[in-house]
Simulated scan of single mutants.
Amino acid sequence: MNYPGLVNVENTVGASALAHFAGATANEIKAGIEDYQGVARRFDIRFKSDEKIYIDDYAHHPEELKAFITFGAGVVSREKDDRHFSAAFVFAYTGFRCRIC
């Protein structure tokens, strides 16, 4: 699996269990995981260099934001140098959308 974040591990385990329950073989499940292309704007690595990494993430629910922040902080805490984790959030909610939440 080439996608970071605990949420992706959890989703992979859940999808694998459902695929097994539906009759998929272990080899079919493995092939599906290897072929998975991800979802646009979910932990989407757009740029990576030795000094910086830019990840686009469409987290818009409190639990998704928490998962993204936890992932970012976890990456930085494992580094041996003095990197820092920064996150910028853009909220494009309309008044209507906020009223129905």
Rank of each mutant, 00 (worst) to 15 (best):
M1W: 03
N2E: 03
Y3H: 15
P4C: 09
G5Y: 14
V7S: 13
V9I: 13
V13G: 07
V13N: 01
G14E: 07
G14F: 11
G14D: 04
S16Q: 00
S16F: 01
S16R: 05
A17C: 00
L18C: 01
L18A: 04
L18K: 09
L18S: 10
A19V: 05
A19L: 14
H20G: 08
F21S: 10
A22W: 03
G23T: 00
A24I: 00
A24M: 01
A24F: 00
T25C: 04
T25E: 00
T25L: 00
A26P: 00
A26L: 06
N27T: 05
N27W: 02
I29G: 06
K30Q: 05
K30A: 15
A31N: 04
G32L: 00
G32R: 02
I33P: 06
D35W: 01
Y36N: 10
Y36G: 13
Y36V: 07
Q37L: 04
G38Y: 08
G38V: 04
V39L: 13
V39W: 05
R41E: 12
R42Y: 03
F43N: 03
F43G: 11
F43H: 07
D44K: 13
D44V: 02
D44T: 05
I45W: 07
R46F: 03
R46S: 14
R46Y: 00
F47D: 13
F47P: 02
K48R: 14
D50T: 06
E51F: 09
E51W: 08
K52Q: 13
I53E: 08
I53N: 12
I55S: 15
I55V: 15
I55R: 11
D56F: 02
D56R: 10
D56V: 06
D57Q: 11
A59R: 05
H60W: 07
H60I: 03
H61F: 09
E63M: 15
E63I: 13
E64P: 10
L65N: 08
L65W: 05
L65A: 14
K66N: 14
K66W: 01
K66V: 09
K66A: 15
K66Q: 15
F68H: 07
F71A: 13
F71I: 02
G72I: 06
A73F: 05
A73M: 10
G74W: 04
V75W: 05
V76H: 04
V76F: 03
V76S: 09
S77W: 00
S77Y: 02
R78F: 04
K80T: 12
D81V: 01
D81S: 08
D81F: 04
R83Q: 13
H84L: 14
A87C: 14
A88L: 10
A88F: 06
A88G: 09
A88D: 01
F89W: 08
F89C: 15
F89P: 08
F89A: 12
F91Q: 03
F91V: 14
F91A: 12
A92T: 07
A92I: 12
T94D: 09
F96M: 01
R97M: 14
R97W: 03
R97N: 10
C98K: 04
C98M: 11
R99T: 11
I100K: 10
I100S: 11
C101W: 04
